[in-house]
Design a protein around this nucleic acid. Structure first.
Lengths: 110, 110
DNA sequence: GCATTAGGTAGTCAAATGGCTACCAATCAT
DNA sequence: ATGATTGGTAGCCATTTGACTACCTAATGC
């Protein structure tokens, strides 16, 4: 664990584009070649390649080339970070809301 | 539940900037005025306001103005979406990795 | 009632983003 | 050996983004 993370905002940035989000969707079903991944998007290769670079750059994806085929894989702990952050903040915020609720109740029943 | 969500990529987009991320960090500790929020960032007002708009636009934050003060609040279920998405994908991917692991073991012990 | 404070508009600008075409390079199949 | 396939570069372009200054408006405090 504790792999070198891209800063969180960069990870979010990588996920902030529909194409890239869809690529991740696809990749949870297993690794795939660049051309296979790019198929569903009617998009010039270079454009698609840039999207992949963004994902890789954010640590969400890794890739390896064998022969002329590059295979792209979801990084094992790619989403852990995001998960951790989100859950922490959700939790803190919900707790706060609860506390407020309690306070209000007391106030009302006073 | 099932509030009108901004599309997920938009939510991610809103979280893809350090300033905005920091604002969310701050807001889990409770609602705050615009000026109070903006304090830590040495940033012109209009710039900061735009960041807030992005957050609001993505449904992460709401705000109300009373008198001359606008109070910004984290939306109750702001992060639920993100959480759901992330966990789902993490889970699917991890399961897949496990399955692969099992397959490899079998292969090795064959 | 006048100055201060909190928020907000309008308009400008540089850099980043997301897209394209044109072309190149390596590998695989025949 | 050569043609098709896969990936990749270089360079261009429009739009969006994140920042700024200058200015305006409406509440508040005294």
């Amino acid at each position: 664990m504790a792999t070198n993370h891209a800063p969180l905002h960069k990870v979010f940035g990588a996920l902030s584009d529909p194409t890239r989000l869809a690529v991740v969707e696809q990749l949870v079903q297993g690794p795939a070649s660049v051309s296979h991944l790019s198929q569903p998007f009617g998009m010039a290769r270079p454009t698609f390649l840039k999207h992949l670079q963004v994902l890789e750059n954010a640590g969400i994806v890794t890739s390896e080339k064998a022969g002329r085929v590059r295979t792209v894989t979801l990084s094992p702990n790619a989403l852990d970070w995001v998960d951790t952050w989100v859950r922490q903040h959700r939790k803190r915020w919900e707790r706060r809301l609860n506390d407020l609720g309690t306070i209000l109740e007391k106030e009302i029943n006073r």
